[in-house]
């Protein structure tokens, strides 16, 4: 199947993640996967597709529905030098295991004065848009990013998904890897065509902590991440026809945060729209605004605009859910407001 003449092919984000994990497992016997339904099922959102067939139950381990137990076990294995990739099925389930995540996974390195490393990836599905309601639709990356000690990675497309996963596994720190269900390219969910893209077959990395300019522009900077990058790119294409040049900054990781790329973009355009599918207050959008304000607020020609979930739980009915999600229409409207 592999041909040297054609080293890339179009695959989904989910497949790209699984491929990265598989390549790291081939390269390093210390890498293994565990989580709920990661085995024969291949991960509910496809993140471990085909790994079970290749590596077997010994390295792709189905766990009991026992997040404190198996996330803690991932920490213990990492402390002993293994490199577990652990899946928390929905990020919303963090409530039943946050002690292991925050008090243990994230703090052990610091508490030990650097003596103990926890090289572990905790991946989890995020996001809404398909009526899964309040307990299965959150993003929560701001919550993890707020707590010190874990890197937080949020890919928006297949290429980054593969490269960031490879970097996350190779990292000596705990990395939270949050993938948006709507960007996985799943056959059973409405998807943006950007969820399927050319990805090299061979192993490669995308560095953690470097934002990407997903699209260059000169009038407005949209700083965003995850599925909202895909929406923003759609909007940017649409507004180009209306004479508005939109730059889209894909943060790709929250911790570390690439402040420099944000500042450079805003310095260029003078206008900042932060699009975030997480809750609005006390989160990422405020943080990005603060980065600009702390550095040089005079670079802004208009006040910062924030488009985020308006501090309500994610509702069920489609009309209600889409009323609070950052849709293309709302992004376009926000850009136009800034241009007005």
């Amino acid at each position: 199947m592999t041909t040297t003449e054609n080293p890339t092919r179009r695959i989904t984000t989910a497949k790209a993640m699984a491929e990265a994990i598989g390549l790291e497992m081939q390269a390093d016997p210390n890498v293994f996967v565990m989580g709920e339904d990661v085995g024969a099922y291949g991960g509910i959102f496809g993140s471990t597709t085909d790994l079970f067939a290749e590596f077997g139950a010994d390295r792709v381990i189905d766990t009991p529905i026992s997040e404190t137990g198996f996330i803690g076990a991932g920490i213990g294995a990492a402390v002993e030098g293994l490199r577990p990739v652990v899946e928390l099925m929905f990020v919303d389930f963090y409530g039943v295991c946050m002690d292991q995540i925050s008090n243990h996974m994230a703090k052990i390195h610091y508490e030990s004065g650097g003596a103990v490393k926890v090289p572990m990836v905790l991946m989890a599905a995020t996001g809404g848009g398909y009526s899964d309601a309040a307990q299965h639709s959150q993003c929560l990356w701001g919550t993890f990013a707020h707590l010190p000690g874990m890197k937080v990675v949020v890919p928006s497309n297949p290429y980054d998904a593969k490269g960031l996963m490879a970097s996350a596994i190779q990292d000596d720190n705990p990395v939270i890897y949050l993938f948006h269900k709507g960007a996985q390219g799943l056959v059973w969910m409405e998807k943006n065509p950007r969820s399927i893209a050319d990805v090299p077959e061979e192993a490669f990395t995308v560095p953690i902590g470097e934002a990407a300019i997903a699209r260059e522009g000169s009038d407005v900077s949209i700083v965003t991440l995850s599925l909202s990058v895909q929406h923003s790119l759609d909007v940017a294409e649409q507004l180009e026809g209306e004479g508005i040049s939109v730059e889209v900054v894909d943060l790709r990781s929250l911790v570390p945060l690439d402040r420099q790329t944000v500042l450079e973009s805003v310095a260029k355009t003078g206008k900042l729209l932060v699009v975030d599918e997480d809750y609005k207050s006390f989160g990422l959008s405020g943080e990005i605004a603060a980065v600009v304000a702390e550095t040089d607020p005079t670079m802004l020609t208009k006040p910062v605009s924030r488009l985020a979930v308006p501090d309500v739980p994610i509702p069920y009915a489609r009309t209600l859910e889409y009323a609070i999600l950052p849709t293309r229409e709302k992004i376009a409207a926000a850009v136009k407001d800034l241009m007005a």
């Binding site: 293994f32 137990g69 996330i71 076990a73 920490i75 213990g76 402390v79 292991q100 008090n103």
Partner: peptide, 23 residues
Amino acid sequence: SCSGIIAQGYPVACGQALAMKRK
């Protein structure tokens, strides 16, 4: 190692044991 959060060392111990078994 120790933890100030009671019983939360138990899952970590399971993981260490898993590592020993795997090795």
